[in-house]
Design a protein around this nucleic acid. Structure first.
Length: 554
DNA sequence: AAGTCGACTTAGCACCTTTACA
DNA sequence: TGTAAAGGTGCTAAGTCGACTT
């Protein structure tokens, strides 16, 4: 293993850091769980796993057979063949769960001084891990903590959910650090790091193999505001901007390819059309031991429905098993091509619902093809391009708003359009329905108050009494009515926004897809303080974009 | 050509902190 | 001034994609 690849570009000259922070070793709480309603003895290792299961109480995972089976398979190995516990169904983890909750409460109820002392001690212990020196620049480290053991919480129908994710030790971890500087210490005497490298062609500080999936790695990187990350962020957006100059030609090229005699060329051209129009992900092949999700190139016949009137309906589980459901009008040629791709394979056999829609190509092929169209182009660039171009266009539409709050609402609406385009979802917040009902009730109350004020105003104008008393002066009532109307309008808007956004996540596009220069320029142009749009961490992540001129366009 | 490796970005959620409002 | 909602942060899973290996 060479310390330094000669042909790859160097990312740093010197690199100094303190390595990683290990989670505390497991200590026994000694609380006995019940088996067949009777307390049982567990070794430290057995208890650690039982506790990992106990803390899952109340989650949906416990209703998943896969989760229970995987946990049981791992725990059984640790229990051994002669243990009294032979059946997970007879296990009652409640005592451990209750201990866990009580412990939480106890910590919460600790006197303030004690909490402050603990916080201070924690910060002192962490301090040295928080920064690295890269070419003598002090940079923040992102995730310097080693992941603690626990039960694997895979998303969607993950075949490995519930497996015990084992503890990671120094012997599992490879450190990357500058030559000739102190190798980080660790708290395990007698152990050695798996490896110490001095590879300046990469930006990671440490990695270990994912204990759940042998082919995956867990890395320790610098934080989002580091030079490594901001340089590549800028490069990402500049590449997406470059696509602007090529997109016309690319569209012409794929439209022409729809007419090709070659099936593969036609499929590539339709896939690219979807990626361009709908900002779909590439969709690489997945293994059996992962959740069954798809992207554009891995769409199955059953994921698309060819409808009347040049419409197509998509319905599939994408990244994180988030459902993508969208009915769209497509070009007539695409409509007929998709109908064809659904029907027969490349060698004219009947295609079944679970077979690939694009059976002559995959994401790697498509990415290769994209390199012919533009230097460095890949599928994901279209998503960045589409998101940023959409925001830029929406923010530069004619606007009639005047206040900062209204402008912020306008920005949020544009942000929402992008989030919907990219299918960035979130689960409905807890208590949403109740909160909506509360808002409705408040709305009604305000409406009634407004009605009463208006009746009083009518009375006042006629010099009549109102509800058995002298009506208040006209000018005062008029002011109150106007105030009430504004309040009502604001409430109505809030309620509508809340309902509209209940399943839309705005943050993901802000963090990953929207060129911050669009936002910064717009804020300057419309005199909206940037802090209204970017919070502290986004301001820091996007520090590189802050001095852009107001006239700048994506 | 296909499969694997390795390094990086993108993603939603849990939990904690701050803010808004009665 | 207490409570609930909103907002922020940390965590880690799940993607992408080019390079390398077979």
């Amino acid at each position: 293993m060479p310390d330094q690849a000669e042909d790859k570009e160097a990312k740093w000259d010197t690199l100094v850091h303190s390595g990683v922070l290990f989670p505390p070793e497991y200590t026994s709480h000694g609380v006995q769980m019940l088996y067949d309603s009777k307390p049982v003895d567990l070794t430290l290792e057995q208890e650690e796993m039982a506790t990992a299961m106990a803390v899952m109480t109340g989650t949906q995972y416990l209703e998943r057979q896969q989760f229970l089976d995987n946990f049981w398979a791992d725990w059984k190995k640790v229990l051994g063949p002669k243990h009294a516990i032979r059946d997970l169904k007879k296990c009652d983890f409640t005592p451990i769960y209750e201990w866990h909750m009580a412990e939480r409460e106890r910590k919460k109820a600790l006197p303030k001084e004690e909490k402050d002392t603990m916080k201070k001690e924690k910060e002192e212990a962490e301090a040295k891990f928080k920064h690295a020196l890269v070419d003598d620049r002090k940079e923040q480290v992102g995730n310097f903590r080693v992941e603690p053991p626990g039960l694997f919480r895979g998303r969607g129908d993950h075949p490995k959910m519930g497996k015990f994710k084992r503890r990671i030790y120094p012997r599992d971890i490879t450190i990357n650090i500058g030559k000739g500087v102190a190798v980080p210490e660790h708290p395990y005497p007698g152990q050695k790091w798996k490896e110490v490298r001095h590879d300046n062609t990469v930006t990671w500080l440490a990695f270990w193999k994912d204990p759940i999936s042998a082919k995956d790695y867990k890395y320790v990187w610098l934080a989002a505001n580091s030079t490594f990350k901001s340089d590549s962020d800028l490069a990402k957006y500049e590449k997406a901007r470059k696509l602007k100059d090529y997109i016309g030609g690319i569209r012409k090229a794929y439209e022409k390819d729809w007419e090709s005699a070659d099936m593969r060329t036609r499929q590539m051209a339709v896939a690219l059309y979807f990626i361009d129009k709908l900002a779909l992900r590439a969709g690489h092949e997945k293994d059996e031991d992962e959740a069954d999700t798809v992207g554009c190139c891995t769409l199955k016949v059953e994921n698309v429905e060819v409808l009347e009137d040049n419409h197509i309906k998509f319905d599939f589980l994408g990244k994180d098993s988030i459902r993508y459901e969208n009915e769209v009008a497509v070009h007539p040629k695409v409509h007929s091509l998709v109908r064809q791709f659904c029907k027969t394979t490349k060698d004219n056999k009947i295609k079944k619902p679970d077979m690939d829609l694009f059976d002559t190509m995959d994401a790697t092929d498509l990415n290769k093809r994209l390199k012919d169209l533009m230097d460095g182009l890949s599928v994901k660039v279209f998503r960045t391009y589409n998101a940023s171009v959409t925001l830029d266009a929406l923010l530069h539409k004619e606007s009639t708003t005047s206040t900062v709050d209204e402008k912020k609402a306008e920005y949020d609406r544009a942000n929402k359009e992008v989030a919907i385009l990219c299918n960035h979802q979130r689960s409905v917040p807890k208590g949403h329905t109740g909160q909506m009902q509360k808002m409705e009730a408040k709305l009604l109350e305000h409406q009634q108050q407004l009605d009463a004020l208006e009746r009083e105003l009518t009375a006042a104008r006629k010099g009549k009494a109102f509800e058995g008393a002298k009506a208040r002066p006209v000018d005062s009532l008029e002011r109150q009515i106007e105030k009430k109307r504004d309040a009502l309008k604001k409430l109505e808007l809030n309620a509508k926004v809340k309902e509209d956004l209940k399943t839309v996540a705005l943050g993901t596009s802000k963090i990953n897809y929207l060129d911050p220069r669009i936002t910064v320029a717009w804020c300057k142009l419309h005199e909206v303080p940037i802090e209204k749009i970017f919070n502290k961490s986004l301001l820091s992540k996007f520090h590189w974009s802050m001095d852009i001129e107001p006239e700048w366009r994506f």
